[in-house]
Design a protein around this nucleic acid. Structure first.
Lengths: 251, 251
DNA sequence: GCCCTGTAAATTGTCAACAGTTTTCAATCC
DNA sequence: GGATTGAAAACTGTTGACAATTTACAGGGC
């Protein structure tokens, strides 16, 4: 089943080469390759759900749609192949990968280990400014705990702040790459309301372990936090219920 | 400094398209793209040290050398970019990445967390056949502990067996990808002889924790094992001494 | 109806050419 | 000698054409 992305889908237009302010013939030069722009656009389409697992990326159609030649499309696909978002099959094309439950659980496991490591590192070295920022997020999440639409972005931001502040670029990059891949998993489960309160209590506990510099405790709590999310994922898939968007930071 | 790989370097020849046995005009078809073959060859060149950090990959020269057009070279470079082995700079070319100590230490940290997770998973579910295999490797390493050339490959195999047997593909893939990147770090330290005995004592301890199903102990020991390697890396760089090849599984 | 065959259309993989950008190098000036 | 300039060479980014492979589909047989 080859689904060619609709030419009228929201968001996809010819790619714009980044330009400096007040561009003129003397100042315009290439600062980003088309291949790079195509890669980002395809990532956006995958993460947003516009492209779904199993969809085939038709080079010719994409080239026409994005108004580039097929070369940059091919290059972008090679990039996406290595990040695990697509699979390139020789002579047959490039397909958005599909992730089954087993693989999603594997990703959760690896993420939980990385999240735990982030906790360890943070507890060893968290600045007052970071702690204040985390606390602010926690308080806003408390205030939003009756409203998923408000809570969820804060939750995502809290998680990302933790990982990005751990002082290890490879940790952050790996964690985020895995999160992106989780978008390929399309089973969705309801997030019960009480779950947000539980979720933020766990967040507070993590924060407190970090603040008092307890590395072992922070690691254990943060690893367990993602694992709890894994447990909920299993429950959701059993319930076969339907629910809101992405899973990557689904507490 | 752009170093174009020497046309006479060992190992690099025109790429061979995989063929089935007794190929004829009727049976030959493409089973692997040139881009994929090029990627593998470039990886080999990087991991083997033939290409070093900072080297520029000249598309034209490589195309001539490997007897392909520049397209597959470009595609391969996009792949390598995402795996962290090279850096693509628009309009300037593709460069083998260089890793400084700070980044090497980051990689060690992430690897230690992943290795610890492998221990956790193995302790929860290790088959008798796997345990027997690990024990065999341990015994061979004991016998080889006076001989680095014999010890080192066994050590690599032991580590890979652990990670590959943990039952989590993403864990293994991530771990190995990071190991590959460590080849970009070019400071080398002497591996003292006593270090192999210490190293294998730690291996035995890990094995025993796994065998008795002690997940927490296995995780801690295995995480500590890589961290000890990290500590040795720091010491080596301070000593500024020179020593044998790759670091990725340098206990 | 299903299965097989053959052909055309569609698509992918690669190549070479062209345009744009950067690097190299010679000449000139101080 | 060092700094600057300008042109040529080298290289990268993209495109379109061609070759190879796969897919789609029509027609025929059972």
């Amino acid at each position: 089943m080859a689904i060619v992305p609709s030419p009228h889908a929201a968001g996809s237009a010819p790619l714009e080469q980044p330009q400096r302010e007040a561009p003129s013939a003397l100042t315009i030069r290439r600062t980003e390759s088309l291949a790079s722009l195509v890669r980002k656009e395809l990532e956006r389409m995958i993460v947003s759900g516009e492209l779904r697992g199993g969809d085939r990326l038709n080079e010719q159609a994409l080239a026409e749609r994005l108004q580039v030649s097929r070369g940059p499309i091919r290059e972008a696909c090679r990039s996406l192949e290595q990040t695990g978002l697509v699979e390139v099959q020789v002579n047959r094309g490039t397909f958005v990968r599909q992730i089954e439950l087993k693989e999603a659980l594997e990703i959760y496991e690896v993420r939980s280990a990385l999240f735990g490591l982030a906790g360890q590192l943070l507890a060893q070295d968290a600045s007052p400014a970071l702690l204040a920022r985390l606390k602010g997020l926690l308080e806003r999440m408390d205030a939003a705990s009756d409203n998923l639409d408000a809570y969820y972005p804060l939750n995502v931001e809290f998680h990302a702040t933790l990982v990005d502040s751990a002082g290890n670029g490879h940790l952050a990059a790996t964690y985020h790459a895995l999160a992106k891949q989780l978008h390929l998993f399309r089973r969705r489960g309801l997030v019960p309301r009480e779950s947000m309160k539980v979720s933020n209590r766990e967040h507070w506990a993590m924060y407190e372990a970090i603040a008092r510099g307890d590395a072992a405790e922070a690691q254990a709590l943060m690893q367990a936090h993602i694992r709890a999310g894994k447990g909920r994922l299993i429950k959701m898939t059993r319930a076969e219920t339907v629910a809101p968007p992405a899973l990557a930071e689904d507490d």
